[in-house]
């Protein structure tokens, strides 16, 4: 008997990639998963930061999928290389700052590289034609194939019957007849198939797979670039965009005000990188300050931070200001009234 062919499955943690991999396993293909970590992924950490989510046990859905399937999962850190995709997407952005088409091309080319380095035969994804705007339009699939260089080694088991046969089908490594013809946005066929395979409790992310499809997140990213006058970021920057209230009272500085205990703890880890404002006389949030501030700026920033403390209605609140490169000092200030905090300051 010939040895089984090996497929590398792009595992996102969602239902579609789970089903696509399962279909291959059913055909006796050896499957291993890869999952990309871009820094923008919704998976994992942010859920751990905010306390309100703590009741639910945290799980990484890609790992969960792999465990359901009984396959290995390799998580690839692509944070550095992915920057170019976000900063200079050749095909532009979607509705928000999501460079979906460039992202797909990039991920397929990385998967191809992994496939070659590890002696695998082809790639599978859970994509369904027409399911999401932009990245899964039928006329764009050839663009992904062409620009990633994957040629006909990319198989999409959930909609393969609607597409031209790929090499794994033509060579008989997989039986095309057993592949599917899902199309469009209707999720019912996927749900029925999940039931048939006995998968329940699978993840159903409301948005896309990453924060770049989120409108408010995208605004914060654009704001960051505008303030710096440069399109660039580090991992810490994009993590911080997920946390706290972001308030920019003036073009040259921004406050990140924690909203609850979990965020306080998280922001605490950034004390060495930012100036901070702490409320001393009352319970209140930790505030990180990004930018170079004058004494007057710090005063205004402290008044805003105090607005979010339990001393918001007090005449005076005591705060500790610790400038990034200076001595900490204490200040008594009057919290800024809500009416003075301009709506447009909220990023």
């Amino acid at each position: 008997m010939s040895k089984p062919r090996k497929a590398v499955a792009l595992i996102s943690g969602g239902l579609d990639s789970l089903l696509a991999a399962k279909l291959m396993l059913e055909q006796g293909i050896h499957v291993e998963g890869i999952n990309f970590y871009t820094g923008f992924c919704v998976e994992g950490h942010t859920h751990a930061i905010r306390k309100k989510d703590k009741a639910k046990p945290k799980r990484n859905n890609a790992l969960w999928s792999a465990e359901q399937l009984g396959i290995k999962l390799h998580i690839l850190d692509i944070i550095e290389e992915y920057k170019d995709v976000v900063i200079n997407p050749k095909h532009g952005y979607g509705a928000n700052m999501n460079p979906c088409l460039d992202c797909k091309i990039f991920m397929i080319s990385k998967a191809k590289q992994w496939m070659e380095e590890n002696g695998f035969d082809f790639i599978i994804t859970g994509e369904v034609v027409g399911q999401r705007p932009m990245s899964q339009r039928k006329d764009l699939l050839p663009v992904v194939v062409r620009e990633s260089g994957i040629d006909d080694l990319l198989l999409r088991p959930l909609c393969a019957k609607n597409l031209a046969p790929t090499l794994p089908e033509r060579e008989g490594w997989v039986d095309r007849e057993k592949l599917l013809d899902f199309s469009g946005r209707n999720r019912k066929p996927q749900m029925a198939l999940a039931k048939q395979f006995g998968f329940d409790d699978y993840a159903t992310p409301a948005g896309g797979c990453c924060f770049l499809t989120d409108e408010s997140y995208s605004k914060k990213l654009v704001d960051l670039w505008q303030a710096r006058n440069k399109k660039e970021y580090e991992l810490d920057d994009i993590m911080l965009l997920k946390v706290g209230r972001h308030i920019r009272p003036a073009p040259h500085y921004k406050l990140i005000v924690s909203r609850e205990d979990g965020e306080n703890k998280f922001l605490n880890g950034y004390r060495k990188q930012f100036s901070t404002i702490e409320i001393k006389s009352h319970n209140g949030p930790l505030t990180l300050v990004d930018g170079e501030l004058s004494d007057d700026d710090f005063k205004q920033a402290a008044r805003i931070a105090a607005r979010f403390s339990q001393g918001r209605d007090a005449d005076s609140v005591n705060v500790l200001i610790t400038p990034l490169d200076g001595e900490a000092y204490s200040l008594d200030i009057a919290p800024m009234p809500a009416s003075e905090i301009k709506q447009e300051w909220y990023v």
């Binding site: 970590y37 751990a48 990484n60 998580i75 690839l76």
Partner: peptide, 9 residues
């Protein structure tokens, strides 16, 4: 001081 999935990676 690294957030999941970085510790796993």
């Amino acid at each position: 001081n690294s957030l999941c999935p970085m510790p796993v990676i």
